[in-house]
């Protein structure tokens, strides 16, 4: 037990994080490329067309994983932000800040592919469907978090203030989601509900799983890379930074 906690603290020390992340990033990047290649091959070539939607459903292989990632990353960001705020762990603050742009990007991709998917399915690019609307609001929440972080000059204060915002946001996300869904059911006339394919072929499921893993690996690699730069910036006066930079150049 005690050994484990020591290891954990080693990981939270900026210098150790910097080294460890530096070693891990290439692996995650390689996995990202491999999984994307396999997933896209399965999704575009191997998997059969949908009997109702034809080939257009294939956009699901991007849409669904990015939507999942967008939602999950917001929660993860709020958790890291809360840890940073309550226990004053600098690495957690850095992780929260590093996650935000990737989360926003994922959410944006989910919206974009959703609109592209909507065109052949519903005949229009945008419908005020409950899920799309919720994702749009989630994107606004990400943008608010990043804008607040950028607006405050003092690093510590920026982390703390945006942590409060992330925590308020994460409490609100379910409330927003349910109210939007409720609003949507009340205004049935305007929208067409998307039904998940009730019986999904095994190959479709496997492909979706691989694409989701690929999105995970991508997010981990990018977030770690961003956190690594942030660590360097924050610790630029520390001796370990000078040592590392000298050996690398």
């Amino acid at each position: 037990m005690s050994e484990r906690s020591i290891q954990w603290f080693r990981f939270t020390a900026p210098a150790n994080f910097y080294d460890l992340a530096g070693r891990l990033i290439p692996w995650f990047a390689a996995l990202t490329i491999a999984l994307f290649a396999v997933g896209l091959y399965l999704g575009l070539v191997v998997a059969p067309p949908d009997y109702q939607q034809g080939d257009s459903y294939r956009i699901m292989y991007i849409h669904v994983p990015t939507a999942w990632m967008g939602m999950f990353l917001y929660v993860l960001m709020a958790v890291y932000a809360a840890i940073g705020l309550i226990w004053r762990i600098k690495m957690a603050e850095i992780m929260a800040k590093a996650i935000a742009p990737t989360g926003a990007l994922m959410t944006f991709f989910a919206l974009w592919t959703g609109a592209l998917w909507g065109r052949p399915t519903w005949g229009v690019y945008w419908v005020w469907d409950a899920r799309l609307t919720s994702m749009l609001i989630l994107l606004f929440l990400y943008l608010g978090y990043m804008a607040l972080h950028a607006a405050i000059d003092d690093r510590q204060r920026a982390s703390n203030a945006s942590a409060v915002l992330a925590m308020v946001g994460v409490v609100n996300v379910p409330i927003i989601y349910f109210s939007v869904q409720w609003w949507n059911t009340l205004h049935q006339g305007a929208s067409i509900t998307v039904t998940d394919a009730p019986t999904m072929a095994t190959i479709m499921f496997v492909t979706l799983l691989i694409m989701t893993l690929a999105a995970w690996m991508y997010s981990i690699a990018v977030v770690l890379a961003r956190a690594r730069i942030e660590v360097l910036e924050r610790e630029r006066k520390a001796t370990w930074v000078r040592e590392r930079l000298e050996t690398e150049s």
């Binding site: 804008a147 308020v168 927003i176």
Partner: peptide, 12 residues
Amino acid sequence: LLILPLYVPPLI
């Protein structure tokens, strides 16, 4: 930017 998204539920 911070607050309007949170205003969605009371608005609805």
